[in-house]
């Protein structure tokens, strides 16, 4: 069957099998390997992408189900060489160690901040609660999202200013 969707702003059309999962479509058919593939059971959340601006676990969505929809992957966060504040925050606050969970974490953070520009720590933790960091670096992930929220409200926190 043929599927057409918009990925990071560009329309793509491919011939696929109906059973192809979105995560494999993104990685293997489009070559966008920033989206990671982890537990395959919708638990770990490393495969999170945005579909029509909502975070979804792409291991549990068929590529066919994304037909006609807008998909945004980690590659779509940077625009014209400018990093998204979420990406900047993860750099500034050491929001990653091994990096495996990072793409999913950043996309969930992007969706959270689009919905709620000034989230509390609890709201950030709740938003990423379906995603697992194997390095257990949650504190710095939360701080990274807070950094992005502050940057977007144009009152950046002091970099590395954890007391």
């Amino acid at each position: 069957m043929q599927v057409t969707m918009t990925v990071n702003g560009e329309e793509v059309t491919k011939e696929i099998e109906g059973r192809l999962l979105l995560v494999h479509f993104i990685r293997d058919h489009l070559g966008l390997t920033g989206t990671h593939w982890g537990c395959d059971t919708s638990n770990c959340g490393t495969c999170v992408v945005l579909m029509d601006d909502e975070p979804v676990k792409s291991c549990t969505v068929l590529a066919a189900m994304a037909g006609g929809r807008q998909v945004r992957t980690v590659e779509g966060l940077e625009v014209d060489g400018v990093l998204d504040p979420v990406q900047e925050g993860f750099m500034q606050c050491h929001g990653l160690q091994c990096g495996f969970c990072t793409p999913g974490m950043m996309l969930t953070a992007r969706a959270l901040l689009d919905d709620n520009p000034d989230p509390t720590e609890h709201e950030i933790r709740e938003a990423i609660s379906g995603q697992i960091c194997r390095c257990t670096g949650y504190s710095t992930i939360v701080r990274s999202v807070q950094w992005a929220a502050n940057a977007e409200s144009e009152s950046p926190v002091t970099v590395g200013g954890a007391s």
Binding site: G45, P55, V56, K57, V61, T108, G130
Partner: peptide
């Protein structure tokens, strides 16, 4: 029930 990302679907 599950987590926020699953609850989106």
């Amino acid at each position: 029930i599950a987590d926020p990302v699953v609850r989106n679907r």
